[in-house]
Design a protein around this nucleic acid. Structure first.
Lengths: 138, 138
DNA sequence: TTTAATCCCAACTAATTTACTCGGATTTCG
DNA sequence: CGAAATCCGAGTAAATTAGTTGGGATTAAA
């Protein structure tokens, strides 16, 4: 019941960008160093975020990455879903083709769990986390 | 962000036992057939539940498995934790040794998520799910 | 007391996923 | 032009998943 490092690293990278939103493009190398993540690996993850329209890239010298929207307009759920797929504890909810569904007493709890997870992740923005972190450190 | 089949199968087996609580031992073969799960694989899972004290076994002919407590005294969280480990979306919460912890803005959301997941799974018993399923089918 | 039903246990394995690495091509600023 | 960046596809070692295989031990019932 764990997120893979893709989701974890991806969120940290997004938060790194959120922290620097409005200050021009942030090069991958800088993110990788601050977050202590393999640069090449992070490149693949951020590419997925770019393809999903959550970050924008600027190629060439002085280039880097920028969040596609303001940090208060991007939820954690969006980041996680791009990198980990739908936020659902079991496949049979996402797939919706489980033939045991009508007799499966377990299904109800997975639905409840999925709803709770989506509520938490969908109602928290990158800006929320940056603000909370700043508050804690002060 | 998915449970493995261990957690899913394990919960289904536990629910199968819950449905027959008070009717004597239920043989593994019967559970495996009803739930369409490999008998030998399920055997390994239920062995973990037994070692954790959640089910009791009766060996020999006419033997089988019985829930160690009444279905309304066993939560889904207990079953899942035995088979999948602590209910936490990232390791750094369970391990409590992440050196980035003081600067990690991501940590807050994982804590919130873990709390929500534990709340949902910890407040639902096997009896709750059996009852809800019966209600839906009627 | 035999026999059949059951659980118990350990080892093995194929497929998939994870978490990367490697090597280069392309773009853009100064 | 040259350095700083992103872009892209392929390769890979280790771990995990989801089982399978094969036998041994226990017990109720005939």
């Amino acid at each position: 019941m764990r997120l893979s490092t893709k989701g974890q690293y991806g969120l940290r990278a997004a938060l790194d960008l959120a922290d620097r939103y409005g200050q021009g493009p942030v090069p991958l190398k800088a993110i990788a160093e601050r977050e202590e993540i393999s640069e090449h690996y992070l490149e693949q993850l951020i590419a997925e975020l770019r393809k999903a329209g959550l970050v924008i890239s600027q190629r060439g010298a002085q280039g880097g990455y920028i969040l596609a929207r303001a940090p208060d307009k991007i939820t954690v759920a969006e980041i996680v879903e791009v990198l980990e797929g739908p936020i659902a504890p079991v496949d049979c909810l996402a797939e919706d083709n489980c033939k045991r569904s009508p007799v499966c007493a377990a299904q109800a709890i997975w639905k409840k769990l999925a709803a709770a997870m989506n509520q938490v992740l969908g109602s928290t923005t990158l800006a929320d986390l940056i603000a909370e972190n700043k508050r804690l450190k002060s």
